[in-house]
Design a protein around this nucleic acid. Sequence first.
DNA 1: AACTATATTGCAAATGACTTGCATTTGTCA
DNA 2: TGACAAATGCAAGTCATTTGCAATATAGTT
Lengths: 139, 139
Amino acid sequence: MKDVLVLLKENNIKITDERRAILRVLQEAKLPLAPADLFLRLKPSMPKANLTTVYRNLEMLEDLGLVKRLGFNKNYFSYELIDGREHHHHIVCQSCGKVEDLENISEKFVSEIAKQTNFTIEDHNLEFFGLCVICQKEK
Amino acid sequence: MKDVLVLLKENNIKITDERRAILRVLQEAKLPLAPADLFLRLKPSMPKANLTTVYRNLEMLEDLGLVKRLGFNKNYFSYELIDGREHHHHIVCQSCGKVEDLENISEKFVSEIAKQTNFTIEDHNLEFFGLCVICQKEK
DNA sequence: AACTATATTGCAAATGACTTGCATTTGTCA
DNA sequence: TGACAAATGCAAGTCATTTGCAATATAGTT
């Protein structure tokens, strides 16, 4: 968490209560949060939290590369703290909505695509959808 | 294209001028189109085309599995005709926006994820972003 | 501790993609 | 051709997200 504060300072970004709270909630959530959801979780400890500010801060954190925006929901984006985490992807249960992380997706795979297309690959998004173990049993 | 008309009939869906035109434009585009873009391309041959109808028809075509909705643009979805095409993915140039198809992504990859997570995998979205050959040279 | 420059916030209003209600029109099939 | 269900057009609504601007807070500097 130290690194984050340093990075903010380096970018002339002031450390406000709401920012600290947003970072904390993201960290505690351990799952991608939609702005509205983050806002709700912020409220208890920060009654004057403001949804607009949440949006602005998520955008700022994304620009700094501290947060990743994920588009697997139909009507809104979710945001996840990158912190020092490994690059990873997600698998989403289509029945209960649970999100699990996928670590260890081989980079070999990405370089294969680069070779195939001659693109320089800067980023990639891999999303998997299906039924988690619990929801499989409920069928 | 015959199969499409048969499928529509089987679902009590009427074949209207606008539907024929939408299918033709999607087919000619050979790339995913946003509803607004599709609407523009529709206009010349169909001056009374209506954006609401475009939305409604894309949704219907998606429900029938004739069209795939893609979310790699920030503010809107794009739609691509599936027709008889192989399941495939896309790589998007972050500079010029060009979209290329990726065929031959190994299914081995998907089954590996299934084993790792114990999910039943129903769907997946793989998107790659980078610089195409032309835009690499312009740097 | 007060001062200043600049960043941040809060609120209300705007935006823009997409959806919906409903009256009118059109396709299909007997 | 006629009847009925489905499709369309238009206007209005929805909802996530963005923006303008005035008020406030932060972080150096005196």
